[in-house]
Structure formats: structure tokens, C-alpha cells
């Protein structure tokens, strides 16, 4: 049992590296998100070797624990793009904070309107923020971590696939507006897409997804009781 964590964490890291290589090989399409591919590979591995998910979850605790330090490290993303923020602080902050609020409110409101079960409703509140933040938020409030993580990953993939086409179709002229919109709505997956096309726009998307995560992390936990009230 002592070796469980070493094997599990090494396997996940290797599979993630492999998933990244596969994603690069097929040209980084949003649907080949390395997180998604690595998760599928681990799920297949657990099924093939007959390992109970609970045993894997316990063994992978060190990796899960590293998410806290990695979230701290995301400060680097804001720091590296501080020039873009300084250049137009007011419109960028209004767009990102306002966009995040609309993202949070629309997901929660629509989940209530559709009459979704409470657990799904709770998990959907953080779909608009990137997975490390949604996991941190759900862990802090005792919400559905796995569902929230899945919704964040799916949202990133959906956004990176559809948002650029939507912007093109509607003729949104502002390059900065498009980059911020993609960052807030499709977080890391959208940022990755943007970064491969235009470094400045990619920086704006990166800034947007970290700031959006911060807004949600400061706002959702205090409102949790009210958001999840029947």
C-alpha cells in the first residue's frame, strides 16, 4: 500500500505527458484536451487492472494536494501579463469582472430555470471558471468536486470550439474584446487556442481566465448557502 501513491502519481504524470504529446501530434484541437485524454487513459487503466476508483483516489492524494501550490503559482500569469492590464486597466477589468458575473449568474439561473437536481445545480455554478479554481471552490465549500471539474473542462472545450466561430459570425471587431471573451468563457482551453495564434491575444486570454477564477473564488463561497438553498 505504501507504493500505491508512487505508482498512481507517476502513472498520472506519465499519462498526462503522453496526452500532451498526442494532443500536439494531432495539432492541438480543443477536443483533444490533454486533461480529458489523460483522464480517459486513467479510467481505462483502472478498468483494465480492476482497480477500484476509491483506491486510486486515495493513492493520488499527493497530486490532488499539489493543486493548492499550483493555484498560488497562477499569480505568475497575472504578473507576466501586467503590462496588458496596465495599458487598459479599466475596460479590461470591467469586461472580465462583468463577464464572470454574467457567466456565474447565467449558469446558476438557467440551472434553476431548467429544474436540474440540486447536485447538478451546485456543480454548474462554477462551470464558467477554470478547473483548478472550480475544484478549489468546491473543496472549500464542500460541494461536488468531480462534477464541477467535469463541467469546467467541458466548458473550456465547448468554448474553444464555438466561441471563435461565434465572434467571426457576429463580426466582433475588437481583438482585445475577443481575447478577453474567450479567456473568461473558455479559460485554459480557449487561452491555449488563442496563444497558438497570437501571443498578445493569448496573454489577454490568460489574464482573463485567472482574474475570472479569482472573482469566482472570492464571490461563490460566501454566497454558497444562498446559491444552493432549495
Amino acid at each position: 500500500m505504501l507504493f500505491d501513491p508512487i505508482i498512481a502519481c507517476t502513472a498520472v504524470l506519465l499519462l498526462f505527458a503522453g496526452a500532451r504529446a498526442v494532443s500536439a501530434r494531432v495539432g492541438h484541437p480543443p477536443w483533444a484536451s490533454p486533461v480529458l485524454l489523460a483522464t480517459l487513459a486513467v479510467a481505462v487503466g483502472l478498468a483494465v487492472f480492476g482497480i477500484a476508483p476509491a483506491r486510486f483516489a486515495a493513492a493520488a492524494t499527493p497530486l490532488r494536494w499539489l493543486l493548492g501550490p499550483a493555484l498560488v503559482a497562477l499569480a505568475l500569469v497575472i504578473f507576466d501579463n501586467r503590462a496588458l492590464l496596465r495599458a487598459e486597466a479599466r475596460p479590461v477589468l470591467i469586461a472580465v469582472i462583468g463577464g464572470t458575473l454574467i457567466g456565474l449568474a447565467s449558469a446558476w439561473g438557467l440551472a434553476v430555470a431548467l429544474g436540474l437536481p440540486p447536485l447538478l445545480r451546485a456543480a454548474l455554478t462554477t462551470k464558467t471558471v477554470t478547473t483548478p479554481f472550480s475544484v478549489a471552490i468546491m473543496t472549500a465549500v464542500g460541494g461536488p468536486v468531480a462534477l464541477a471539474a467535469a463541467f469546467s473542462v467541458l466548458t473550456g472545450v465547448i468554448g474553444a470550439l464555438l466561441v471563435p466561430a461565434l465572434f467571426r459570425w457576429l463580426g466582433i471587431a475588437s481583438a482585445t474584446g475577443r481575447a478577453l471573451g474567450l479567456g473568461v468563457s473558455a479559460h485554459i482551453v480557449g487561452t491555449d487556442w488563442q496563444m497558438r495564434r497570437d501571443a498578445r491575444a493569448g496573454g489577454l486570454s490568460a489574464l482573463a481566465f485567472v482574474l475570472a477564477g479569482l472573482v469566482a473564488a472570492l464571490l461563490v463561497p460566501p454566497l454558497w448557502g444562498w446559491l444552493t438553498a432549495a
Partner: peptide, 17 residues
Amino acid sequence: LVRWIGAMLVPALIGLH
């Protein structure tokens, strides 16, 4: 840490089953 953040999310997603 930022580069490997995706790997740290895998255990949470496996809980989805």
C-alpha cells in the same frame, strides 16, 4: 507547477464515475 496543473486535475475528474 502551472505547466503540470492539468495532471493534478485528473484525480478529481476520476471521481466523476
